[in-house]
Write a protein that binds this DNA or RNA. Structure first.
Lengths: 208, 208
DNA sequence: TAAAAAATAGTACATTTGCCCTAATTCTTA
DNA sequence: TAAGAATTAGGGCAAATGTACTATTTTTTA
């Protein structure tokens, strides 16, 4: 990382992200953020008219990072199950950096409707990716072929629900911090697939 | 249902529940609720010092309804998978009536910490119930016996995540209303179990 | 370097909200 | 029925917040 001076706009975003993650987007106001970086709230408002714009800018950062991660996971060198889990961990780590969004997901999407649209578009993409991946694993004999298509589709939905809401679940039930939380729920995702594996698939997973 | 006059306390709770579900607990204030039922906010405050007390009272209603539902599901006449899904539907319907809690679950538990404690206690109970249920189904040959214990435990966590967060997921992605939403996610829960079924188990499910 | 644009600081104001308090009214009960 | 308790209405206030606005300083650029 370079140590160039950050622009005010950049400092606003990093500080806002920090405060949002610490205290929640419902509590932190423009004045709080301004105070934290020692600028006037009038100045902050010059850069971002209101908190909605800041949240949207942060979401765009997240979406960009997710796009990169997805592109990377799209064509793995070796398409193993272990690789899939490593990619999932990478994705979950990115999501965790923006956890204030997912801890209050509905409130955020109500406050910034644009986010809902964008997120659903991303997820729709991701759904097709999963279906392709499953067929892939079926062809290589890792996943079972005696399961109705409908069940696979619902499996994708399950993954989405866990993917979007593991942070609230952790907040309420476990309170794990940082990578500990990430790894815990990635492990859970791994186990979600266990009963879908063939005997050969199970052998593959256990040796890796 | 009797048509006796409701007490002010009761009217406050039903009106608050309605407003919370419609507009969200973050927006609705004591003054809003008072206005809706045409009493002064001073009067409302006489009955409930603040909104936290109202929310806690509503949660207690929910907890009571859930307890009853659980007791009913505990010892089913015929322990079939179809019965299990019917019980799940009943539970999900109850949860849906108090959807304002689950749409902003983290915010609610932060605002009324008592709710977090109570809910975790309930869920802990429910976890044991599930494990017993699974063993039961294994003994009757409906569920597979070649799956590690760890995977069953994580299955319970999955069910909890889906059980607690299907409403936010619906709000953001599908926007189904009422029983349509309930049935959709109960069906999803049903499919979650498919790969855990034995061939005999699959036959049992399909004929029902 | 002078003018224009960008950035910054800070003021002002209307609204909302939680909270506290008092007065009036209605309902119980001894 | 009269005293006491419960209930109801509504005012007052401080703190917080979003928003708009002005004035000043710094940076760009022609």
């Amino acid at each position: 990382m370079t140590t160039e001076k950050l622009t005010t706009k950049e400092r606003i975003l990093t500080t806002a992200l920090h405060l949002y993650n610490e205290q929640g987007a419902d509590i932190v106001t423009i004045r709080h953020i301004a105070k934290e970086i020692n600028i006037s709230h009038g100045n902050l408002q010059y850069h971002y008219k209101n908190t909605e714009e800041i949240i949207l800018a942060l979401f765009n950062q997240l979406a960009e990072a997710m796009d990169k991660g997805m592109a990377q996971a799209e064509n793995p060198a070796i398409p193993t199950f272990a690789q899939f889990l490593a990619d999932t961990e990478h994705m979950f780590s990115i999501l965790y950096q923006y956890r204030f969004i997912f801890l209050h997901f509905v409130a955020i999407t109500q406050r910034v409707p644009e986010i809902k649209k964008r997120y659903n578009a991303i997820e729709s993409n991701r759904e097709h990716q999963f279906i392709r991946l499953f067929h892939n694993y079926q062809e290589t004999g890792i996943f079972r072929t005696d399961i109705p298509e409908e069940v696979w589709i619902d499996l994708v939905t399950q993954i989405f629900i866990v993917g979007n809401f593991w942070m609230p679940h952790n907040e309420i039930q476990l309170q794990l911090k940082g990578q500990k939380a990430v790894r815990h729920y990635v492990h859970l995702v791994g186990n979600m697939f266990y009963p879908y594996l063939t005997p050969k698939g199970i052998a593959t997973v256990q040796t890796s």
